[in-house]
Design a protein around this nucleic acid. Sequence first.
RNA 1: GGGCCAGUAGCUCUAAUUGGUAGAGCAGCCGAUUCCAAAUCGGCGGGUUGGAGGUUCGAAUCCUUCCUGGCCCGCCA
Length: 326
Amino acid sequence: MERVFSGIQPTGALHIGNWLGALRNWIALSERHECVYSIVDLHALTPSPPPSAEEMRRRVREVAVTLLACGLDTSRCTLFVQSEVPEHAELAWVLGCQAAMGDLQRMTQFKEKSEQAREIVGLGIFAYPVLQAADILLYKATRVPVGEDQVQHLELAREIARRFNRIYGATFPEPEPILSPTPRVFGLDGVRKMSKSLGNEIGLLEPAESVKARLAGAMTDPARKRRTDPGDPAKCNVFTWHGYFTPAAEREECAKGCRTAAIGCLDCKEVLRTHLEKVLAPMRERAAALLAEPAAVERALRAGAEKARAIARATMEEVRHRIGVR
RNA sequence: GGGCCAGUAGCUCUAAUUGGUAGAGCAGCCGAUUCCAAAUCGGCGGGUUGGAGGUUCGAAUCCUUCCUGGCCCGCCA
């Protein structure tokens, strides 16, 4: 069976964009593969300024609860917090010695993030793809689910693996991408990618009333000025969301109703909300149960870290032997 | 190691009459309008003026120091 690795940054409350783009896929993959999933807190250290210690701890807990609330089953995969397996940092150093500055400088994400940096452009943000390569290779993962924006980083991880293997002997498999079927999800403003920092997200654990209110304010086809005007679903971001949540037959009814002005945008949004709630309501319930029992979440993460450490330790021993240290 | 320039709202600032009540545009939020949203119109909030200290009745403004960014020079390899 192939081993899959994937990581998610603890950047605060997760939203439906994260779910559609990654989380949903994590769960599906865990049914067919051996999956290693990590809450990558060391990566979350790279922005400048970094989050405070309390903020970091809060985010890690929040993301853990959300993942479990989404239905991720820790008996079928390995879920752990990156910093609890120190081998990630150790392997990152070893691999970093084989990563080319020129390659790292060419990374689109590095260029973007270094512009956003408010204080300094730290080494961490530059070396980010190296740590990412270490995350994957530490578990000798062969498959990595990636979004559009991460293919460049995975390509670099393959390059680093190749180089290491050439110098020190065959150690790492070259990880292959599993291209995510979901395109990028736009936010409530209908223009920009859904993101917590832009405030245009629908949170997975957001209260139902809040989802309702904010969905009502979501951008629709600007050409449809009056209730009696016909609309164009192809120009309406809300309609693309129907594509993610509403069954085909009902979705077609909405499209037809919109084009003929038989229904209004609020009617259309209400249909979407009904189907959205079928996904979100169970998550909220599970999250509430998990929050009531934080010790259980901690236990699950500790057990996950144990499993991850066992693999990481073996890989690192091999790596140390190959490079000639210890 | 030495020197020079810069830092003002989330963003962009040649706003602040040179020491006398911290401003504008965009973004944001609220309202009107609209089936909702957008557009338009109206309104509102927002800042320890990079941090700390000092001079002064009074500091964005002057002084000291630190941080961050940019530039010049020197030294070592």
